[in-house]
Amino acid sequence: MFDDFFIRALVAGIGIALVAGPLGCFVVWRRLSYFGDTLSHSALLGVTMAYTFDLNIALSVFLISSVIALILIQLQKKTNLPGDALLGLLAHSSLAVGLVVIGFLTFIRFDIMGLLFGDILAVTTNDIFVVWGGGAVILIILKLIWKPLFASTVNYELAEAEGLNPDRSKAIFTILLAAVIAISIKMVGLLLITGMLIIPAAMARNMSDSPQKMVIYSVIGGLLSVILGLFSSLEFNTSSGPSIIVASLILFILSLLNIKQSIKLKN
């Protein structure tokens, strides 16, 4: 039952969940879920670049997503369009450009469904190194910027006044977000990565009264989602991304039930 590919997928998935948990909390706290969507949609362009120029997929996705993030920051400064319109513009146009470019790449056989929704068969030993190596770097950097990033998430002016340089930590966090998308794209698929970030964090919010607890529950929720999702993906022959997200949705619903019960108990 445990073929090699499944073990590889499981190991990579656990790595992704460990990184997505804490970052997902910040995505929820800072209201960045649409920003995450934009970055992940632009990842398709990154994948086509990787195939065209024979680059590592994670590296290429990371570069393209970072560029899109920088373009977004510039557009926000220079236009009067509201933030959500700019996000939509970049998300859909980069997705469309990516799909058009794929159309031209007739010399390569493409698994579009795998790209959009993830494919556990596609995870190689090399990918495991990318996930765990990249993930470790992401977590170390996040740990280093935690204080200023968290303080500015609570209140920007307090962080700025007391000398924590919130703009710098915000820029670094944006790059970390692009990086986590890059390492999880093969497994979760680019349409569903934001779900991997925010659903476990949303579940954790229902159960926690402190930021530390929320991060821990979010990691646990992500781990359970990956394990349950991958087993059901194997069992029912479904795409890995949707299976993981459905598993996390079920956990989220359970966390809601848990709240209702505790309220009833209190009354």
Partner: peptide, 14 residues
């Protein structure tokens, strides 16, 4: 610093 107005987002358990 004690600001005059402070808007804290309650999506954060704090």
């Amino acid at each position: 610093y004690v600001p005059q107005k402070i808007s804290i987002d309650w999506t954060l358990p704090l």
